[in-house]
Design a protein around this nucleic acid. Structure first.
Lengths: 129, 129
DNA sequence: TTCCATGTTGAACATTGGTTGAAGTCAAGT
DNA sequence: ACTTGACTTCAACCAATGTTCAACATGGAA
């Protein structure tokens, strides 16, 4: 049983840029940093999978929750050229887990600062007795 | 009824650096960007409130969830020199809300990408019939 | 009152995440 | 075959978030 490539590596830098609403320079930047992958044509031009668009869209929201481009590239590391919904699901899960962990850290630290032994309001003004 | 200042503006850059576990250069950086406030001694040296330590500690965890130094400075904008626990609580709440909003955005976008009309797995390989 | 650890400023450097521009190549339509 | 828009690389630049260095000032302890 064979599979049909179904539009494999057809998108140019400009195509990806338009579809993911980022500048072409950003598309090249993401490729050079391993967020997306490309093959080259005989004439040395990049060609991307449709999945590159998705990766970029995910990368943008991931950046908003504090992930670096490097971390995002690692997140996408084992992802195949044409990821299955299950693969996307795993990536999404790892991303949400990471973001939840950071939010939990935020809450923990804030709680510690507000009520812990080393609390924020030490040395505050007190009524003179 | 008067209040006792209780260590108002006594901390040097080095004191704040040690207490908040950042470099002295970072303390100066945060002051220059409005994350913390200082008064100057007659000899032009910075003096900080204890609250500066807390601001920096909050700032560090806030950065981990994607907030910029500028955004953090805005968050601290109305905060008094010696904030009450209520003021800290408000700041903490605004911070957590912002982080939750970003996490919600992340979930929304991921859900849209995974299952929406403009889904990630369009053009995927299919068995040849 | 002198010492020197710590403070000050300013500029240069580093890293991350890109954008812009120059100079040249590719490819798609006529 | 030519034109023209989109592609290529490389380098310079930008903003954010700091660090480091030089040159000089301060201030608390002996």
């Amino acid at each position: 049983m064979t599979v049909k490539p179904a539009s494999s590596m057809t998108l140019t830098v400009g195509d990806v840029a338009v579809r993911s609403r980022v500048a072409p320079s950003a598309v090249r930047f993401y490729e050079s940093h391993g967020v997306i992958n490309a093959v080259r044509t005989a004439g040395n031009q990049r060609r991307f999978e449709e999945s590159a668009v998705c990766r970029i869209e995910i990368a943008r929201v991931a950046q908003r929750v504090g992930m670096t481009v490097r971390e995002i590239a690692v997140l996408f590391d084992g992802l195949s050229a044409n990821p299955t919904p299950e693969e996307w699901g795993q990536v999404a899960h790892r991303l949400v887990s990471e973001a939840e962990e950071r939010l939990a850290d935020l809450r923990t630290h804030l709680a510690a600062l507000e009520s812990g032994t080393r609390l924020c309001d030490i040395g505050r003004a007190e009524p003179v007795r």
